[in-house]
Design a protein around this nucleic acid. Structure first.
Lengths: 160, 160
DNA sequence: AAGCAGAAGATGAAATTGCAACTAAATGTG
DNA sequence: CACATTTAGTTGCAATTTCATCTTCTGCTT
């Protein structure tokens, strides 16, 4: 087919399954995500000493209208397993940035809330993160492009 | 500001830093990537018993014009640390899908190549992966949308 | 009201990954 | 040519995450 070593150009990729347009798109998405999360994570860690997954948890909680989320909601929102979320919240709680409180209507559930210390850290981190995002994203993509990207990603993200 | 618990609607997010359009875009990218790589990884693992990171390595090697890549090139292409790449290639090599061979022009470098067994596995995996990608990506995004997404991600991915 | 399927969260064990430190080899500089 | 610097790759160690399993609790069904 097109797998032989004697082919030395890259032109064949367009007609070869491994160069399939859809496969390369997925690869590009993965690569872009990996590079961006590395850059933003390292920047946030250096500027605020806050791991990106911690920031993500604080962000989700801040965005929650009630100011609290259950472990399951957090696991879904951050795309972690429930076991992973337990450990992650353990660490953030040990650092004093969030607290677990019992849910009044369901004794199985835990309400995770931000502490005052968590709010302080989050606000500083958000300011820093915004600058990093400006450099790595907004300086590369115009507002209309960002809007388009948002729409496309939202379509990809729809459940089923 | 806008951080008080008494706000119960989500309308304030648009005027609040945590709801900043750029921050939510990055969050959406991370979330989409996480969900997609989970879905595709689980599907590939189930159908071909091949971890997604292994598939990525085989794909990179197959795309390489020379049929081989050094550890460093592989580390960069797959966005892993060099240490992580050493371990990853160790595992794939133990499974017999790739092999290390010495580089004739640089005695420090290692050429990683696909074995015949690796090619067999890769071809089956690629067929399966293509089907999964069709379901999770191509059925959700038209060809022109995929092209747009590709361009936007490429801009985001540019180095600096 | 008794029982049961399913959900919420925690935990033990294992796998993966990154960081820092290290060896070996190539390159550049005096 | 000798020496310093940089690059390629590996390894010890630690941190993070997942999977499977377990306990507790809820809500439904009969």
């Amino acid at each position: 087919m097109c797998y032989d070593g004697e082919v030395t150009t890259t032109a064949h990729l367009s007609s070869c399954p491994s160069g399939d347009e859809r496969v390369t798109l997925v690869g590009l998405l993965f690569e872009t995500n990996a590079r961006l999360s590395r850059a933003l994570g390292a920047a946030l860690e250096e500027s605020c000493d806050l791991p990106l997954p911690w920031f993500d948890v604080l962000l989700q909680l801040r965005r929650s209208p009630d100011g609290h989320m259950t472990m399951s909601q957090l696991a879904d929102a951050t795309v972690h397993s429930t076991g992973g979320t337990t450990r992650l919240i353990d660490r953030i709680e040990s650092a004093g940035l969030v607290a677990r409180s019992s849910c009044p209507t369901d004794r199985r559930a835990i309400h995770v809330v931000i502490t005052p210390a968590g709010n302080t850290v989050f606000e500083r981190a958000l300011t820093a993160h915004l600058e990093h995002v400006q450099v790595h994203v907004a300086d590369r993509l115009a507002a209309s492009e960002r809007e388009t990207l948002r729409e496309l990603l939202a379509k990809l993200n729809g459940d089923s």
